[in-house]
């Protein structure tokens, strides 16, 4: 009776898939188990049929001739000889012995001839194998040569590519350096233009400021209110941005020694006129040029007035108004 493990080993053995100790052990079982041998023979026969699954292929016609040529004169293995028959009397064997010797000699000569042929065939096989090895060696060397050639070609290409890239990089560097120099020149020019434009802007700003300031200036002429100086005239100019002004007075009589002329600015936001200070007439020219400021901030000037006050001036007007803007 065969167990499942043996059946498995038999299938693997039939397909020559057993190896090593497993194969040796199974062969030992096979030698002493006839049923197992029959089972394996059946599996081997079935396995051999798998050969029919190979795609059909026709062997070349010359193969048959090659096979038949090879077998001509080739020795055939013989089964082991049967046991010798019982001995018979020596005298009657002499003619047979002579004949046997001749036959043995003939057989020996024939065997020698066959052996020589076999050796010749073996040498041919060895020569064939050597040629195969030589072909493989040549193929391998050719493969190595191709690999080296390919590596050399690749290295040459890489070198040429690196040279080309270096050349391009240098050209690119030179181009970039030129662009940098040009950019620097353009930048210097732009800085110059910007500075010139800045100066123009500053000049225009000053001019505009001046024009704006001038437009805001309050300019007024003051007429005499006195009979002793009917021709007296004064011009007052007020710069509201700077909160300062200029007064020019002509042909106004000199005040008494205990008196001073005092300038007043009349701003509607204040109840009283705002003092712009006292001033003195130049006895040589009969004129006065006065730059004045106020203690209070002036928003709008409605009038300029000049009064005659006590020496040193007053916080508020007490004396007579001698000149008044129109």
């Amino acid at each position: 009776m065969m167990d499942e493990h043996q059946a498995e080993l038999a299938a693997l053995f039939a397909l020559d898939l057993l190896e090593g100790a497993e194969k040796t052990a199974f062969e030992a079982s096979l030698a002493e188990n006839a049923e197992l041998r029959r089972h394996v023979d059946g599996l081997r026969a079935a396995a051999a049929e798998i050969a029919h699954l190979a795609p059909p292929a026709e062997p070349p016609a010359e193969l048959k001739a090659r096979v038949l040529t090879s077998v001509s004169g080739r020795p055939i293995a013989r089964p082991a000889p049967a046991p010798l028959p019982p001995l018979i009397p020596f005298g009657s064997l002499i003619p047979w012995a002579v004949a046997a010797c001749l036959a043995i000699a003939a057989l020996w000569a024939g065997r020698q001839s066959l052996n020589l042929r076999s050796e010749n065939e073996a040498m041919r096989d060895q020569q064939h194998l050597a040629q195969v090895d030589l072909t493989l060696l040549r193929t391998r060397m050719e493969a190595e040569r191709l690999v080296r050639q390919r590596q050399y070609d690749d290295a040459q290409q890489q070198l040429a590519e690196a040279g080309r890239q270096t050349h391009e990089s240098r050209a690119e560097l030179a181009r970039l350096q030129g662009e940098v120099a040009q950019a620097r020149q353009e930048l210097a020019l732009a800085v110059q233009q910007a500075e010139a434009a800045g100066r123009q802007v500053a000049a225009l700003t000053v001019k505009l400021k001046q024009e704006g300031d001038l437009a805001q200036y309050k300019i007024a002429t003051l007429a005499s209110m006195l009979g002793n100086s009917p021709k007296a005239i004064a011009v007052a100019v007020w710069n509201p941005m700077e909160q300062e002004g200029m007064l020019k007075v002509s042909q106004l009589a000199m005040p008494a020694s205990d008196k001073d002329y005092q300038l007043w600015l009349i701003d509607p936001q204040y109840k009283s006129p705002v003092s712009a200070g006292i001033f003195a007439m130049d006895p040589a020219t009969g004129e006065a040029h006065v730059k004045f400021k106020t203690d209070k901030a002036i928003d709008t000037i409605a009038k300029f007035a000049i009064s005659l006050e006590a020496k040193g001036g007053m916080p508020e007007p007490h004396g007579p108004i001698v000149m008044l803007s129109q």
Binding site: A7, L12, L15, G42, A45, A46, E49
Partner: peptide, 16 residues
């Protein structure tokens, strides 16, 4: 392998 080869042998038995 065991099952496949066994079945193949059984199927082909008349021809083996």
């Amino acid at each position: 392998i065991r099952r496949g080869l066994g079945k193949l042998r059984d199927t082909l038995a008349p021809r083996l």
